[in-house]
Write a protein that binds this DNA or RNA. Structure first.
Length: 775
DNA sequence: TAATCGATCTTTTTT
DNA sequence: AGATCGATTA
């Protein structure tokens, strides 16, 4: 490789990258820092294996964690060699689904299963935990998910690490039983079940080990225990394994990701070679220093030194702002001025606004809309979580799998068909007893029901059978190329014309989808809702119909459609994004500011990044400590290293939380960051910069007091320690502490209910009534 | 049985 | 501010 005869696509790599691409034989762990060209290495390696090593593309498996990453990888590999299109590039979950469609029978699974999302999981669990508070059900569902991430069965002693109680084991086992009865799987099963099958069926395992001679895993630091087990099972004697990751970017611990996987990879795969990619080509050095100086506070890292190949650049800016409205203005001004500047150096799409929680996007959306700043919100649009969409999908899921209890419960009595909870429960119980599908059960069990219920269930059955008939005999294939779907729908209701106009079917599967939504009455139900509430539900349903038109109008097409929706929900919000009214620019459709959570930025890069909400309680969240605080630090690192040229950090003195505006402290990360490389603007809070007391924060025990000095002698607005007070919401209480701040006295009060409240005497004091002791 | 009102509580990240 | 739970009413 040192001679001059390298092909151009290898020539562009640096020495470390090239070493990683050309490495063969032993297992390989690539520790790739942010912006070190890791995707380039993987894609180049795929192409190289095909071109130079003559490997069959089908024998290469590359696994990622997001669909976006999988798509990008496929595209970039194909740019080097078109044959890469035949390599298997999938997310872990999509690989698991693919595996189970073919081999699920070894685990008693029919190939027509549907994938339950978290909500479906909660619904199903809710039927076991009847009458318990929803939070409890959610917590249990969460724990079951974690258990599956750790590959733990209900009877595994190690379940203690999550919840070892008898109660939890019973619920987990009960849930598994019920899930099996529906014939469906949840997200965790997509990993767990393939592992079980591979372990139990040597013939199947052998087949896969022979099929894939190369397996690569991207973002390996986010792999959980079950995913590691899957990798291990897929690797045979001669499989070449290569994993790429960065322990500093592990941010999915809450979902079972185990940094241990990457730390211990060399132990689990003996003879592992390690290659480090430490040249950062993305960010300027001050940006890199900002990011590193924070994550340096973490213990238990593999440790690496990133070199900024781009050299120095603009100093990152740290802005202290009064409140979140000012933060929104700050971002809007910054972006607007930069884009509208004479030299035209900046486009909207150069910019990204980062926040910790999706809820924080709202303020930016509102203001950007007002100012005509085009933007797109990544990830927050929960299109598939909308009620009307879930209704429609439940209809379709039930059509695919008539044992789907969750879907059945959702739509059998929607709109109201006179089937109460009691009736529905009875039907499901009867179905379970004789092990037949809920559709069959409904048919045969009708006699015992009231006239009203009988009529209702008959209508529901009809919807399903008509839908099924349409899939088996699509109108196109029939030769009767009439108005799609109308034939069946039109006669049903006299008012049918209303929703028939509102929903228009197109090609392929959309014919069936439209008919089901209309016939079931779901369309009309939501049309009425739209009229009452002024919603966009019919439009949303139309969007679902449009998406369906890309799939074949057959049972297989429907299954594909559902699987695609279940596994890739990354529809980007395009409807709400603002348009610049002045210049009717049509070409620049994608030139928009990105609004995005820190988590969602992983793998992305932007020229200019604004990290917002750097306050205690927001980022990091207040309840984070130890390991979890370290994960928040990594999140900071991920966010900051997205920036190529410019980085801005904003921190507010006050923030609206819990529907109330409260003073907040700057993020602990702002005390850890190497401030010498920052430019501070705005009113820095007291104690910041000069006498920094980072030790007090690191200690964690001392509640606050590290901040804000001691304005005790100053004005207290008449508040003093021990003063009793009353508040409409909180009831009676007493003042625990009064201290100064730039916004005037801050009162901390303890209420009888146990609630502790902090408020600014000058701004919010009016809501609190002082009570005299002698009254 | 369904809808509605009011009180109470909790606010993350996602394949 | 929004979701959720429970009780009360049509």
């Amino acid at each position: 490789m040192t001679d001059g005869g390298l092909p151009p696509y290898l020539e562009v790599l640096n020495a470390e990258q090239r070493r990683a691409v050309l490495h063969t034989g032993k297992p390989l762990l690539i520790l790739a820092g942010a912006g070190s060209g890791k995707t380039r290495v993987i894609t180049t390696k795929i192409a190289w294996l095909i071109r130079e090593k003559g490997l069959a593309p089908q024998s290469i498996l590359a696994v990622t964690f997001t669909n976006k990453a999988a798509r990008e990888m496929a595209q970039r590999a194909r740019m080097i060699d078109e044959r890469a299109a035949d390599a298997m590039l999938r997310t872990f979950h999509s690989f698991g689904a693919w595996f189970l469609r073919r081999n699920g029978k070894f685990a008693g699974l029919d190939s027509g299963f549907v994938i339950y999302d978290d909500d479906d999981m909660i619904s199903l669990l809710g039927t076991i935990m009847k009458g318990e508070p929803k939070m409890e059900v959610k917590r249990t569902a969460y724990n079951i998910s974690r258990a599956k991430d750790y590959f733990l069965a209900p009877d595994d002693p190690a379940l203690a690490m999550i919840d070892g109680s008898k109660r939890f084991r019973t619920l987990y086992a009960g849930y598994e039983e019920k899930l099996a009865a529906t014939g469906n799987v949840d997200f965790g099963d997509l990993i767990k079940k393939p592992v079980e099958i591979l372990r139990a069926e040597p013939v199947v395992a052998q087949r896969f080990r022979e099929r894939f001679s190369v397996i690569m895993v991207d973002e390996y630091q986010d792999a959980n225990v079950a995913q590691f087990a899957l990798l291990k099972e897929l690797c045979g004697e001669n499989t070449y394994v290569c994993v790429v990751g960065d322990d500093d970017q592990s941010i999915y611990r809450f979902r079972g990701a185990e940094v241990k996987n990457i730390l211990q990879f060399p132990d689990k795969f003996s003879g592992t070679d390690i290659i480090r990619l430490e040249s950062n080509y993305r960010s300027t050095s001050p940006i890199l220093k900002t990011a590193s100086s924070v994550v340096d506070h973490n213990r238990g890292r593999l440790g690496k030194t990133l070199r900024a190949e781009r050299g120095t650049g603009m100093q990152p800016v740290l802005a202290f702002l009064p409140d979140q409205d000012e933060e929104v203005n700050f971002a809007a001004e910054l972006i607007g001025n930069s884009v509208k500047a004479k030299n035209k150096q900046s486009r909207w799409s150069d910019w990204a606004v980062l926040y910790r929680t999706n809820a924080q996007s709202l303020g930016f959306e509102t203001e950007f809309l007002r100012r005509g700043i085009p933007y797109k919100v990544i990830g927050s649009l929960k299109f598939y979580e909308r009620e009307e969409i879930k209704d429609a999908l439940a209809l379709l899921s039930f059509l695919v799998n008539p044992r789907d209890e969750v879907a059945f419960r959702r739509v059998v009595n929607k709109p109201a068909r006179g089937l109460g909870a009691v009736t529905v429960d009875r039907l499901i119980e009867a179905g379970a007893e004789r092990g037949s599908s809920l559709l069959e059960t409904a048919k045969t069990e009708m006699e015992g029901l009231s006239a009203k219920a009988k009529k209702g269930i008959a209508a529901f059955i009809k919807v399903m059978e008509d839908g099924k008939a349409l899939l088996e005999k699509p109108p196109e294939a029939n030769g009767t190329n009439g108005k799609n779907g109308k034939s069946a729908a039109a006669k049903k209701k006299s008012r049918g014309a209303k929703d028939a106009d509102a929903l228009v079917s197109g090609e392929g599967l959309s014919v069936c989808v439209t008919q089901m939504i209309k016939d079931s009455g779901i369309a009309e139900y939501h049309l009425v809702q739209d009229e009452i509430m002024g919603n966009q539900r019919i439009n949303n349903l139309q969007e679902l119909v449009n998406a369906a038109s890309l799939y074949a109008g057959t049972a297989e097409g429907l299954l594909e459609f559902l699987e695609h929706i279940e596994l890739d929900r990354s529809l980007e919000d395009s409807s709400l994004a603002g348009k610049t009214p002045q210049d009717g620019d049509t070409a620049a459709a994608e030139d928009k500011v990105t609004l995005i959570t820190f988590h969602n930025t992983k793998g992305l890069e932007f020229r200019k990044v604004i990290m917002t909400g750097l306050e205690q309680g927001v980022f990091p969240r207040e309840d984070k400590k130890d390991d979890e605080l370290e994960e928040e630090r990594r999140l900071f690192y991920v966010g900051a290293t997205r920036a190529m040229d410019e980085l801005y950090l904003s921190s507010c003195a006050m923030r609206r939380m819990y529907g109330r505006t409260l003073p907040v402290d700057p993020s602990v990360f702002l005390r850890e960051v190497e401030t010498s490389c920052l430019r501070i603007v705005g009113k820095a809070p007291r104690g910041f910069g000069a006498a920094r007391q980072s030790q007090a924060w690191a200690g964690g025990s001392g509640k606050n007091a590290a901040y804000g000095g001691n304005g005790g002698a100053a004005e207290t607005g008449g508040w003093r320690r021990g003063q009793r007070l009353f508040h409409d919401d909180y009831g009676y209480g007493a003042v625990a502490e009064v201290r100064g701040s730039d916004e005037g006295p801050v009162v901390r009060a303890q209420f009888e209910t146990g609630r502790e409240v902090r408020f600014l005497a000058d701004h919010q004091g009016a809501a609190y009534v002082k009570i005299s002791d002698d009254a």
